[in-house]
């Protein structure tokens, strides 16, 4: 059969695949997951950018029938599209945890997620533990972190501290983590990161109908939030998934109807129809996971949980 080339970039690898012309998004996605040995597939997606807007490959539609960039090979980023409500309960496989760790770490370093200087130092110390193992002063000599990107540039600029001083600060915490294995260090990182206000939120610029006030809409694991343009930390208004009746769009307008019929219907405009489609897609996916978490675990999840528990116990013994 005729094929076309696809390049898939994960947080720590690049892979190339030959896809059959007739393949649906799901065929490619499943192949990537199998190649990675990833079973907790529901958090992830294949992302691409088209005309400056980020989009996710649809599973049920043919790859070539989607509005993907015309390039050879076609480039996709394999990324977490949805986030768990509690990392320690939901991320079971080590590979899943590792991919989340890498993605969230990049978001923090790139300042897409705001993090206070104190917490960035603590997070950096866990990242160092994950990479270098236990601290050994005989081996980890001053300057050993010189090549690592560990803190956001904003934090580095904010203080009059030398690279050496930062390294000392991080190492003081790092030395405290002795005995923590790589997967544990990455999980500790995620447990702290998930409490940051901007963690796991997809933000969109929106305009409100009447007075044209610019606002931000945030979609995350718990629901939909509305923020002022200058405050991404605390929403002015929140709609939990369980309190929403219906979400719909028509062209650039999007409507959220609360379950409570007396409550005000929230209407706004996004910049493009394409963005509304993406917002609704994220709402459906997040709501689906929200419902799944509140049901009895499937057999597959039960098995994976049991396996993860066994694996953890085995590792602890080894360690």
């Amino acid at each position: 059969p005729k094929t076309f080339k696809v390049q898939v970039i994960t947080m720590d690898a690049e892979m190339e695949f030959s896809c059959e012309m007739k393949w649906k998004g799901k065929d490619l996605f499943d192949l990537v997951c199998r190649t990675l040995g990833l079973r907790e597939t529901w958090f992830f997606g294949l992302q691409y950018t088209i005309k400056g807007v980020c989009a996710w490959l649809k599973m049920e539609k043919k790859v070539l029938e989607q509005e993907i960039p015309k390039e050879d090979p076609v480039k996709f980023h394999f990324l977490a599209k949805f986030y768990p409500e509690k990392v320690e309960e939901e991320l079971l496989q080590e590979i899943t945890q590792h991919l989340f760790f890498l993605q969230v770490k990049k978001q923090i370093l790139d300042e897409e997620i705001y993090c206070s200087p104190e917490v960035t130092v603590l997070l950096a110390s866990y990242a160092v533990q994950a990479k270098y193992g236990d601290y050994d002063p005989a081996f980890h000599k001053p300057g050993f972190l010189a090549q690592d990107e560990l803190l956001p540039k904003r934090v580095l600029k904010q203080y009059q501290m030398t690279v050496h001083m930062w390294e000392e600060k991080i190492t003081a915490w790092y030395a405290e983590h002795r005995g923590i294995a790589r997967d544990e260090a990455e999980m500790n990182y995620l447990k702290i990161a998930q409490d940051l206000a901007m963690y796991g939120v997809n933000y969109f610029s929106i305009e409100q109908n009447k007075n044209h006030t610019d606002l931000l809409l945030g979609v995350d694991a718990k629901g939909i939030h509305v923020y002022s343009i200058d405050n991404r930390f605390s929403p002015n208004k929140s709609f939990e998934w369980s309190a929403i009746r219906n979400i719909s769009y028509s062209e650039k307008e999007l409507t959220i109807k609360p379950l409570d019929k007396k409550a005000e219907v929230f209407k706004f405009f996004s910049s493009q129809l394409k963005v509304n489609k993406l917002i609704l897609q994220l709402c459906i996916g997040n709501h689906d996971l929200f419902m799944k978490r509140r049901r009895v675990d499937s057999i597959e999840i039960q098995q994976m949980k049991a396996q993860a528990k066994e694996e953890k116990a085995r590792k602890k013994m080894e360690h």
Partner: peptide, 22 residues
């Protein structure tokens, strides 16, 4: 529970989605 009436319209009923999964 997800309905696309035309290419520029879409609607998702969270209530129906919940009912169908119970």
């Amino acid at each position: 529970y997800f309905a696309r009436k035309a290419n520029h319209k879409g609607s998702y009923s969270l209530v129906d989605a919940l009912k169908s999964k119970v």
